[in-house]
Design a binder for these strands. Structure first.
Lengths: 344, 344
DNA sequence: CTGAAAGCGCTTACAG
DNA sequence: CTGAAAGCGCTTACAG
């Protein structure tokens, strides 16, 4: 069945296709009588504009690509909701690309950027080498890039970004633990290749150093951002000769894994060990015990990232090339029941 | 900066644009010597095919739209991963539309179907009235529709679908509780408008009836598929004059909320109350206590749905119109520590 | 306010 | 194996 095109509408209405097009795009520039006739023809033919033709003609897709580790991480889910709440209203849809914890390499992401036409790309995560080559290509095609949540790499430092002060937040969380009397504090990172918890680890190390505490070998373990990875990593921590009294996790997902590992060992939280998370995902407040953590304004980050993207798209190459100052949004230390002073 | 088109490549290589196009799409039909010259010209001009033009010409976008309640629900996250694992390899990207627990009405979803060009639509959830009008339009445009996870509504019964036997699974879960000696068993649904837990509720009611147990008014409460909703709903359950000894939740997300509410009341799980979930999301195994639940093969559902979609797209209108028998995949009752016999 | 016409960048029969 | 040419469905200066 052939799809109805603008041509048959024009014929039926007895006008030119230009007029039909105008009725659709700038109705105010068409005489009412004509407009009504065209409206009628549209209804009677069952005409629906061909988005592909329109996109082609306009050189835009109204599609924004979002690159993130996993939509399954509740933190990114919330950021995504923030993004969506802004772009939906402007008629944009989202193409979501998951890097799945760095199993996807830079070439693949690059290929996606290049082949799939998107009006812009939001990077909430990066893959390890994420080269400058991809970036220059994107720039050349006028695809704006906006970065959320993390300073991803030196090559990306020039792009507009929105995130909390991760270093400071992690320092504050660590200081809180130190303030309660903990001295043996462990840290669960994402892993070597991932920039996602790098700043947080730095904040942790800064606070430990400032307090004169040594980070023993084996106290910083890799949880791979996942529940399972954190369970394994925490297992290692629990058999450490100088077993930590507190575990600070690079994100809440890993904190939930850590709590599970600790419970499995028959230990009590926070009686035997304290656990601190990062992100304040929705499960943090309902975990048992409830999880102390750093709250990030996830939705707000999403909204701001989206607004910058929309500006860049509208503003054309100028706006997209404009070296944006990073926008720093506030974080908050949320104290719940997973943290207490160390056992004597 | 003007983008390089096929024309300048042709010029530089001294061939026609048809030949350049062939090099890209059917290289075997071009003499090697010519092909090499074109290759060279492509590299030297930095040519990248214009996807918009290509899509327009071919009448395809290589985009599949997925409609689901929320990407944040770990169950749907996994289904999505299954879908992705199949379509990625075929060069498709996903446009994801979240209905956000039925706050979006059918018209909006319909508009998305109609305006955004997608080669097909996967419905993992529906909105309440989801009319036949949208469906016929989609059919008219040859957009295949495949349904995952649930029998959504009578109007959608004709479309190919993949899901577990929800009624039977819920019956088995309820029977297990009954077998342990529970008689006062509550059920937490999504809510009136949502079809998502309807079959599960039916299974629960069937099992109760078969055991000769009456479902008291107030034992079936609405949790809205969310953590917060389930906390509220469970709160009501705990003040019921005939307080249940077991709570069967329509999904794991709500079960986690129920567990939190019960803990908040100072009650013990499973000592005072048993909790049963549905889905087996990744947090079920790490919750405290670990959650007994019905496991759905989420990834497998995603993979199968995706394969049917791909077939429908390739097969053209015939395949898409073919009334598909629903594919039933196996579920599994997973027993962990949140369920025990009732207190005496 | 409306129409005739060019053109966006590609693909694809049709010839040769 | 290659080229000339039509055409996909729309938008947009340019005239009138």
């Amino acid at each position: 069945m052939k799809q109805v095109s603008i041509k048959q509408v024009a014929e039926l209405a007895g006008v030119s296709i230009a007029t039909v097009s105008r009725c659709l795009n700038e109705p105010s520039r068409v005489r009412e009588k004509t407009r009504l006739r065209v409206q009628d023809a549209i209804v009677r033919t069952g005409y629906e504009p061909n988005t592909l033709a329109r996109n082609f003609r306009r050189g835009r897709t109204n599609l924004i690509m979002v690159v993130l580790p996993s939509v399954g991480d509740p933190f990114f889910t919330e950021v995504l909701q923030g993004i969506r709440s802004v772009v939906d209203a402007e008629g944009y849809s989202l193409i979501i690309s998951e890097t799945q914890f760095n199993t996807m390499n830079a070439d693949e992401v690059g290929a996606m950027l290049v082949t799939r036409q998107a009006d812009g790309v939001i990077l909430l995560a990066s893959v390890f080498p994420f080269g400058g080559e991809v970036l220059t290509r994107a720039k050349r095609r006028g695809q704006p890039i906006v970065i959320g949540c993390e300073t991803l790499s030196a090559a990306l430092a020039d792009f507009p970004s929105v995130h909390i002060d991760n270093i400071r937040a992690a320092r504050e969380a660590t200081e809180h633990l130190l303030g309660l009397g903990h001295r043996r504090i462990a840290f669960v990172t994402a892993g070597a290749g991932s920039p996602l918890t790098r700043d947080r680890e730095e904040g942790y190390r800064e606070a430990m150093a400032a307090a004169g505490e040594t980070v023993r070998p084996g106290w910083v373990v890799e949880g791979g951002l996942s529940l399972e990875g954190a369970i394994r990593a925490t297992g290692d921590l629990l058999t450490h000769p100088e077993r930590p009294t507190a575990v600070f996790c690079g994100n809440d997902e890993m904190a939930l894994g850590a709590m599970h590992a600790i419970h499995q060992d028959g230990l009590n939280i926070p009686g035997d060990l304290s656990v601190m998370g990062f992100d304040d995902i929705r499960y943090a407040a309902t975990a048992s015990p409830t999880l102390s953590t750093i709250a990030q304004p996830a939705r707000e980050i999403g909204r701001r990232v989206a607004r910058r993207m929309l500006n860049a798209i509208d503003g054309g190459p100028d706006a997209s090339a404009r070296r944006g100052e990073p926008e720093i949004v506030p974080h908050r230390l949320v104290l719940r029941n997973s943290v207490a002073p160390p056992p004597d």
